[in-house]
Design a protein around this nucleic acid. Structure first.
Length: 418
RNA sequence: GUGAGCGUAGCUCAGUUGGUCAGAGCAUCAGGUUGUGGCCCUGAGGGCCGUGGGUUCAAAUCCCAUCGCUCACCCCA
């Protein structure tokens, strides 16, 4: 038997209703904040991600779905969206037609990791990006947008963590200081962290290993090592958020796993998730556009994991009760094509209808109507057909009356609250 | 990539020390009502007990392998 491949999921009713509602909410909220939707292809040239995300990141090193097409071009299923959006931004010269551009997206992403709670190989993200402004206002609007969206999507118990990862002026200096600090105590570090020390010392700060947790307490903090520009930007962000009643915690150990971040980095977590508790992550990336061949253009953005949103909001949701306006019970040899004309007519009026296709007993058809949570049942048997009438039964009240076929539409319109 | 736990009906799960162990509830279908749902009652269908091998007179049960799922590590949304 064929099965969906590891780490992928089928989505169908009733679960798919949650997705539809979520997408609808996203569109509404994004409209309020004036972000335009962008849809990019599912795959890109491999080198876009290698250069954008960083050659030595885990995503690029071991998690990408990369394949060669028939022309031997190396292509990759997108593992994240920012590089793709930047590619589109540069390709279409969006910066030329207006100085600031705000985009959002909802899209599947692909990373070949071992699946676990809140982690899939094909997963979905909603994200937002702002291009063309250095202003702290952009960072702040995005954080406020994320908070607004997540709470409208029913996610609770959120924590916002905030940090600044500096810029090419101050970060290299800080990394050197950090390296020096950890080199002195290298032998006490966990094995993972000794490797991190060589590749990316910042990530030691993020370690969950018992051995590292004490050691990193006394490590130099990036926040004490920011250059004037980064420091000022960070304090403006904090001040703005306080002024807008957004609560957050400073976490100097928050390091993002993608190389392109500069200055502000942030993450929302929810305690309603498992070990993978990050529901939204983002930050500023002032160098990415130029790195990918565009004019030097500052950018900020975030991405939220849709599966994680659905996971975290699940237990607070009411049960979804789908309903149908009317179910047709067809009996005996009543010409179905004639009855079906009526069904078509009702559907054109946005009255949702369905009918039996198995020639089952009336009892079975009624049971089906009840199961579908139908508001009305229309019974047309031989007798009704000959008299040109239909029995209309209100399933909630149990009342039923005989209506002339031509009047069924009006009868329903009158009695249904559409 | 590493580690741990788990695979029995569409779903959620029982199944003792290997010996009427092929089960329950829900769901489905049918009947009770020859044309009226929900509640109730009666009955039915549905399983190579993940797969392959081994031990044994006998395996859902024990052993080995394999595949899959789940959770966690790594990392990330």
């Amino acid at each position: 038997m064929f099965k969906s491949v590891r780490g992928t999921k089928d989505i169908f009713p009733p679960e798919v209703i949650r997705w539809q509602n979520l997408e609808e909410t996203i569109r509404k909220v994004m409209k309020n904040y004036n972000y335009g939707e962008i849809r990019t292809p599912i795959f890109e040239e491999t080198s876009l991600f290698a250069r954008g995300i960083g050659d030595e990141t885990d995503i690029v090193e071991k998690e990408m779905y990369t394949f060669a097409d028939k022309s031997q071009n190396s292509l990759t299923l997108k593992p994240e969206m920012t590089a793709a959006v930047v590619r589109a931004y540069v390709q279409h010269n969006f910066g030329e037609s207006r100085p600031v551009n705000k985009f959002y997206y909802v899209s599947p992403m692909f990373r070949q990791e071992r699946p676990q709670a809140g982690r899939l190989r094909q997963f979905h993200q909603v994200g937002a990006e702002i291009f063309g402004t250095n202003s702290y206002l952009a960072d702040c609007e995005l954080i406020i947008l994320a908070e607004d969206l997540l709470s409208k999507l029913g996610v609770r118990n959120l924590n916002l963590y905030l940090n600044s990862v500096g810029c090419p002026k101050c970060r290299p200096v800080y990394i050197e200081r950090l390296k020096k600090y950890f080199l002195k105590i290298e032998s006490s570090l966990s094995e993972d962290s000794r490797n991190r020390l060589k590749k990316n010392p910042l990530r030691i700060l993020d370690s969950k290993d018992e051995k590292d947790i004490h050691l990193k307490e006394d490590a130099p903090s990036i926040l004490d090592n920011l250059c004037d520009e980064c420091g000022e930007h960070f304090s403006k962000v904090k001040k703005f958020l306080v002024g807008n009643k957004i609560s957050f915690k400073i976490n100097p150990n928050l390091v993002r796993g993608l190389d392109y971040y500069t200055k502000t980095a942030f993450e929302f977590t929810s305690t309603d998730l498992g070990a993978q508790d990050a529901i939204c992550g983002g930050g500023r990336y002032d160098l990415l556009v130029s790195q990918l061949g565009g004019k030097e253009t500052p950018g900020v953005g975030w991405a939220c994991g849709i599966e994680r949103i659905l996971l975290a909001s699940q237990k607070y949701e009411e049960r979804i009760n789908e309903s149908l306006d009317c179910y047709f019970c067809l009996l005996g040899d009543s010409p179905k094509s004639t009855v079906y004309n009526l069904i078509s007519e009702l559907r054109k009026e946005n009255i949702s209808c369905d009918c039996d296709m198995l020639d089952r007993s009336l009892k079975a058809q009624m049971r089906e109507a009840n199961r579908l949570n139908a508001k009305f049942v229309i019974i047309i048997g031989q007798e009704e057909f000959e008299k040109n009438v239909a029995v209309c039964k209100n399933l909630a009240t149990g009342e039923q009356q005989i209506v002339v076929t031509n009047e069924v539409k009006n009868y329903l319109k009158k009695n249904l609250i559409l």
